[in-house]
Structure formats: C-alpha cells, structure tokens
Amino acid sequence: MMKSLFSAELLKIVKQSKTYYALGAIILIELLILLIAYYQGSTVLDLLLESLKQSFYFEGSLLNGNLIMYIVLNSLWFNVPLILMIITSGFLTDEYKDGTLQSVMLQAVRKKQFILVKYAMAILFTILVITFMMLTTFAFAYAIFGKGDLIVYINTLNFFESGDAFRRICFSFISGAIAMIFYNVTSMTLAILIKDSSKTWLVSALFLVITNLLLKVDFGNASFNNLFFPKLIDTWQQLFVYELDWTRIIGNNFLLILYSLLMVLIGTYIFNKKDIG
C-alpha cells in the first residue's frame, strides 16, 4: 500500500502545474541575479575593493561564477523557502479543498501511511528543487562569468581560491537543503492543523519571518542559542567562514534533521487523531 501511495503522490507532483511554477520561479530568481550582476556587478565590486586591489592579487575577475552562486545561495533566507512552503503545503490543503482526501480515506488506506507518504513527498520535492537550483546556477554562472576567486564578507572579509570556493558552495547547497526540508515539513504540519490553503500560506510566511528575526536575537544562554532551531538556519553560511568548524556545522545540520523528524511526528500524530471532515 505504501508503494502505491508513493507512486500516486509522485505522479501528482509530476503532473501538477505548481511544480513547474516553482522551478520557473527558481530560474527567474537566478536570471534576475545574473542580469543585475552582468550590468552593474563589476562597477559595484570595483568601488568596494579598489583599495584592496592595490595590496592584493586576485586570480581572475572577482565578478565570477563563484560569487554569483554565493549570491543565489542567499535566496535561501526567504525567497526559496517561501516558494517551497507554499507548494508543499498545497500537497495536503488542495486535497482538503477538493474533497479528494475523504475519498482516499474511504479506501483501505491507513491515515498514518497516507500522511507519512505526504511528508516523504515534501522531502523529495525539496531535494529535487534544491538540486535543480544548484545545477542550473552552476551552468548559468560558469557559462556567463567563468571561474575565479571568491570574496565574502562575514564579520570580516574572507578570500577563497576558486577550487576551495567551489567545494564550500557545494557543501552549502547540501546544508541549505536540510534547512529547506525543515521549513517544508513544518509547512506540511501547519497544513494539517489549518487545512485552508490561503491561511496555511499566511502562517507559513509568518513562521518564516519570525524564524529569520529570531536568528538575530541573542538569548543570553549559550546552550539555548546553540540548540534553538532559528539559530541553526544559517548553518550553510558558516561554510564561508575561513576557519571551518566542522563539529558545529555537522552538529547543527544533525539538529535540524532532528527538528524535522519532530515536526513529522507531531504532524503524523495530529493527522491520525484528527477528524478528516
């Protein structure tokens, strides 16, 4: 039964127009960044780094594919998770709206199996979209701007050679995908609680905004700061600190996975107990 449910849900994702709207939105974000960088990026970089160029040698142009990919990664703060949360929550809210959920439950389908497949689809969809985002960004950025050293400002200016920058960017996409999975399973849990699509989108957007705001708040307790989920969302950016703290990076991503599993357990329990009508 789980296999049949999984196949059916996968077919829905492939056929629904929302999937392609999401991919189109990702492409649009990338193209806008590329367009702005192509026409204005070089001028801005020259103004910012004019004094540094007199003291340091940079290999290739600083306006290069690695910098473009880093800029695209910054869409993981709000744009990309918002798109993903809207699409993912619709996996369930659309079925509430259309009445198809009641029809499915009249068959020999256990509620627990059904909702777990929905969560699995949310995770798979997230991985596919982030993979698509990574591959298209690599293709566009390197084709137009080529390779080169990367300069990033995180508390201080950090410089990375082209090869090192590429590796850090790849790991950042993986870490970013884990954060996006957390957002998506949260939106699915919100869909279980709220049922209505527009209200779920609004609450999901509010959750995203509050999470980003709490990221900047210092709660004064080191342990709480290290464990509270909003403090883990920027883990992908820690890969652009010059001296990598792999223990912290891996630990943060592991905690995000645990938070994601917790959201799945909460949502599954509520859905299993809740009246479908």
Rank of each mutant, 00 (worst) to 15 (best):
I13Y: 01
L106S: 15
L82Y: 05
G41F: 02
V129Q: 00
K147G: 04
L213P: 08
F114G: 01
N184R: 01
R110N: 14
N79I: 15
A108S: 13
L227H: 09
T200W: 03
N158S: 13
P230F: 06
Y119Q: 09
K147E: 10
V152P: 15
K3P: 05
Y57V: 14
F207T: 12
E9T: 13
A22E: 00
K147V: 11
T235R: 01
N226Q: 07
Q102L: 11
K15Q: 10
L106C: 14
L28H: 08
K18G: 00
K118G: 08
T189A: 06
E50M: 10
D275N: 07
L262S: 15
P230C: 01
F138D: 05
V72D: 06
I233P: 05
S75P: 06
A191I: 02
L208Q: 13
L63E: 07
L73N: 08
I130T: 13
A139R: 03
N66H: 12
Q16T: 15
L239Q: 10
L128V: 08
L258Y: 00
V117G: 04
F159H: 15
F132N: 02
F182H: 14
I250K: 07
W201V: 09
K147R: 10
F145E: 11
F254S: 12
R168P: 12
N212V: 06
D218S: 10
M134H: 02
I181M: 05
I192Y: 05
K273E: 15
L49C: 06
G163I: 04
D164E: 14
L258R: 01
V209D: 00
L157C: 02
L92H: 03
K112Y: 01
Y269P: 03
G277T: 15
Y70H: 15
F160A: 08
A191K: 03
E50G: 04
D245T: 07
L31E: 08
I86H: 06
L28Y: 09
K118E: 09
F224R: 03
I144L: 10
S175A: 15
S172G: 14
K112P: 07
Q237M: 14
I169Y: 02
Y119A: 07
M85R: 03
K118Y: 02
D196A: 14
L67V: 11
A177S: 13
T88L: 04
D218L: 06
I210Q: 09
G41E: 00
I127A: 08
M69G: 15
F91Q: 10
G251N: 08
S223K: 09
P81W: 01
W236R: 02
K111S: 00
M69D: 13
Y38P: 04
T100G: 10
L32K: 00
K12W: 12
T186R: 10
L47R: 15
Q107H: 09
I29D: 07
V203T: 03
L214K: 05
I266N: 11
I130V: 13
L63P: 08
A179G: 13
D234W: 07
L157D: 03
V44L: 15
T137W: 04
T93I: 09
C170D: 10
I83H: 05
G148C: 01
S172M: 14
T211E: 01
L227E: 06
L73F: 02
N64E: 08
Y21M: 10
K18V: 05
S175E: 07
L52H: 13
L213W: 05
L190E: 07
S89F: 00
S223P: 04
E161K: 14
F166C: 01
Q107A: 12
F58M: 04
Y20H: 09
V44D: 14
M133K: 00
N253K: 00
T137A: 02
